[in-house]
Amino acid sequence: ILEEVGSHVYPEPISVSDAYSNCNASYRVVANGTTTNTMFADIVDNVDAVLMHGPTTLYGSTSATAGADAVALENTTIADVYPLLYYGASATIGDSDLVPPLAHNDGDVGAFVAMTIELNAGSTEDSVIVVSGASPYGDYMPMSADEYYDVPLSGNIVKQTIDWSIDYLTATATTPTTTPGFTIDPVLLMGIAGVVVLVIIIAIVVKRR
């Protein structure tokens, strides 16, 4: 689905664990690094511990093709793609199946990218795509959780990402589709890479008169 909407970011077929930054088990990873890009300050405001339950890493594709032209987003820049959230420095990649990793290696340790935002996305270059290495909401224990095993968490990152994206699309929309009393802005796509599900949120903003 991510490829169909023109995403340059995809989930990698590996798992991430962290023996130090977690909620009482290494697979209940807590991502604790955020972007320093001031453009996204409102997204990461008061965010310092995000639950990533049984997560994966993300990789970039320079050709916007799943499984091809893969690069590690920790050290490679793709136009309009911005990492928002990182795993801790002790995060460890595990590859226990027959599908090889694409941009990392089994046993790698480091602050891998856990969540990205892509601007000017899609065929019309007027959408936003957010991809994360675990489910942002609606799963067993999503990124939106505020506490797990008595560990305080920054679940506010999910709502703040949606709010920021809607504001961005509203501000940059050039040819909105209108109906009486409403403006329907370009689509915000939030990819839940951990379970390979895509949620489409259409931002409907009351038209100012």
Score class of each variant (00 low, 15 high):
Met141Trp: 13
Ala145Ser: 15
Pro136Asn: 11
Thr77Asn: 09
Ser15Tyr: 10
Gly194Cys: 07
Asp163Ser: 12
Asp126Glu: 13
Tyr59Val: 04
Ser21Gly: 06
Val158Pro: 05
Phe112Asn: 01
Glu74Val: 11
Gly88Trp: 01
Tyr168Asn: 04
Gly181Phe: 01
Leu188His: 03
Thr57Trp: 04
Tyr82Asp: 02
Val30Gln: 09
Leu153Trp: 10
Pro13Val: 02
Tyr20Leu: 12
Leu85Thr: 05
Ile184Trp: 05
Met143Lys: 09
Glu147Phe: 10
Asp97Pro: 00
Leu188Tyr: 12
Tyr168Leu: 11
Phe40Cys: 05
Leu188Gly: 03
Val197Pro: 00
Tyr20Ala: 12
Thr177Gln: 08
Val99Thr: 15
Ile78Trp: 02
Asp185Trp: 00
Pro100Thr: 04
Val71Ser: 05
Val5Met: 14
Ala121Tyr: 00
Ala134Cys: 12
Ala25Pro: 00
Met143Thr: 09
Val130Asn: 02
Tyr168Phe: 15
Gly67Asp: 02
Thr92Cys: 06
Gly194Ile: 04
Met143Ala: 13
Ser127Ile: 01
Val109Glu: 09
Ala173Asn: 06
Pro100Met: 03
Asp48Cys: 12
Thr57His: 06
Pro136Trp: 13
Thr179Asn: 06
Asn22Gln: 13
Thr178Val: 09
Leu102Thr: 01
Thr76His: 14
Val151Cys: 07
Asp48Met: 07
Leu2Tyr: 07
Glu125Lys: 15
Ala70Gln: 01
Asp69Arg: 01
Gly155Asp: 04
Ala19Cys: 06
Leu169Met: 08
Leu73Thr: 02
Thr38Val: 10
Asp106Thr: 12
Ser15Leu: 10
Asp69Ile: 00
Leu51Asn: 08
Val30Glu: 08
Val113Cys: 05
Tyr87Arg: 02
Val199Met: 11
Gln160Cys: 06
Thr65Met: 05
Gly67Gln: 01
Val195Met: 07
Val109Cys: 04
Thr179Tyr: 11
Asp146His: 10
Leu51Trp: 12
Gly191Val: 12
Thr161Lys: 01
Ser63Tyr: 01
Gly33Trp: 11
Ala70Lys: 00
Gly54Lys: 13
Ile129Lys: 04
Tyr168Met: 05
Phe112Tyr: 10
Ser96Phe: 13
Gly60Leu: 10
Val16Asn: 02
Gly155Thr: 08
